[in-house]
Design a protein around this nucleic acid. Structure first.
Ligand SMILES: [Zn+2]
Ligand SMILES: [Zn+2]
Ligand SMILES: [Zn+2]
Ligand SMILES: [Zn+2]
Lengths: 165, 165
DNA sequence: TCTTGACTGTTATGATATAACATAAGATAG
DNA sequence: CTATCTTATGTTATATCATAACAGTCAAGA
C-alpha cells in the first residue's frame, strides 16, 4: 500500500480525498436537495467517511467509524446508509472488493467503470458511457433489455506501474 | 423464475444446459488436456454440475450436490474446485450473484460479459472483446495498466421481456 | 522404496449481509 | 396543536459467503 498519510505529497491517482472532498460533498448535497432526498446525519456522515477514505471501504469499516461517533453500532446502520447513497447515485458499490466508494461526479448522472489497483488498492472512477453503449449493443443483439451494469477492471495504477517498471 | 424443468420446451436464452452441455464439456476436456491441467473427478464433476444447472450456482449449492455424491462435505471442497475451474478458464465467477457458471466457450480464450436476468435468474455469456478494448482505452488514458476485468449487466432476458410486454 | 508435490478432506473461524422487530423523529390532516 | 401516518434509526439475532490451517492420500520421479 502506498503512503496515504496526509503528509505524503503523493496520493491515489484521481483520489477524491482531502483535496476534492469538499467540492464533491457540495455537489452531492446540491443534488440531494434538488432530488428531494433526505440526507440525514448518518447518511451525510457516511458519505463524508467515504470521501475521506483512500480507496473503497467495506461496510464494517464504515460501521466502525460511525459507531465511534455515536451512531448505531450494528451492521444494518452502515448497510442502510450505504445502500441509500448507492441507490441515489451518491456512492458506488465495488463488487470485487465487497466495498463502497463515494461517487466522484455526483453532479450528473453517469455510467461508471472502476479501475482497481492490485498494488495500492486505489479505486479510480472512470466514465463508462462508451463501454455501456457497446454493452447495450451486445445486449440488443440477443434481445436482452439492459437495466444497469457493473464494469470493474483490475490492474496497476499509474503510480504503482511506474514504481515497478 | 421461469420453468426450467426438463419437461418445459423452453429454456434459458443461450442456456448451456441439457442441449449443449455435452459439447461444452468435450471442449473443456480437450482444453484441459492440451493445457496439461488435471481435471480430477471432483473438478470434472463440479464442471458438470455447473453445466447441468440453469443460471449460476452458489458455492454452497455446488457443495450440496458434491456432498450428496460422496465427495467432501465442507466448503473448501467446492471453493477449490470452483476456483480451479475459474483460474483455468473453464468457468466464470459472477460477482453480482456470488455464484459461478460454466464457461460457454471453453475452447478459446475470450473476454466475457454476462447478462443477468432479474426475472428468471438466467445468466448469458456474451463476448466482450469490444468492451474490453474500450475499457483498455479508458485505462490507458489515465495510465492504468489493465490486467483483467469484470463486466456484468442486469436486466431482462428476451423471454422475460416479452412475457411482460 | 522413498521422497516430493499436488490433491482432497476436515475443523474451525472469519467476513459479508439481511430479517424482524422496537423506538424515535418528521410530515400531514383534522 | 395533536392524532395519525410515514420514514428513518437502532437493536438482536441469524443467514450467507469465504478462507486459514492442518491431516491424510496418492501418483510421479529419484
Ligand atoms: Zn460516480
Ligand atoms: Zn496503485
Ligand atoms: Zn467463457
Ligand atoms: Zn429471464
Amino acid at each position: 500500500m502506498t503512503d496515504h498519510s496526509p503528509e505524503a505529497g503523493f496520493c491515489c491517482p484521481d483520489h477524491s480525498g482531502t483535496s476534492q472532498a469538499q467540492a464533491i460533498l457540495a455537489q452531492a448535497e446540491a443534488r440531494a436537495r434538488e432530488a428531494g432526498l433526505r440526507l440525514t446525519p448518518v447518511r451525510r456522515r457516511t458519505l463524508e467517511i467515504l470521501l475521506e477514505a483512500h480507496g473503497a471501504l467495506g461496510a464494517y469499516e464504515v460501521l466502525e467509524r460511525l459507531a465511534a461517533e455515536g451512531y448505531g453500532t450494528q451492521p444494518p446502520v452502515a448497510y442502510r446508509a450505504l445502500n441509500f447513497l448507492v441507490e441515489n447515485g451518491l456512492a458506488h458499490r465495488i463488487r470485487r472488493l465487497n466495498a463502497f466508494t463515494a461517487c466522484a461526479q455526483p453532479a450528473h448522472e453517469h455510467r461508471a467503470a472502476f479501475l482497481i489497483c492490485e498494488s495500492c488498492d486505489s479505486v479510480t472512477e472512470a466514465r463508462a458511457d462508451g463501454m455501456t453503449r457497446a454493452l447495450g449493443a451486445a445486449a440488443d443483439a440477443v434481445g436482452f433489455v439492459l437495466a444497469r451494469s457493473t464494469i470493474e477492471a483490475v490492474g496497476l495504477c499509474r503510480a504503482c506501474a511506474q514504481g515497478r517498471a
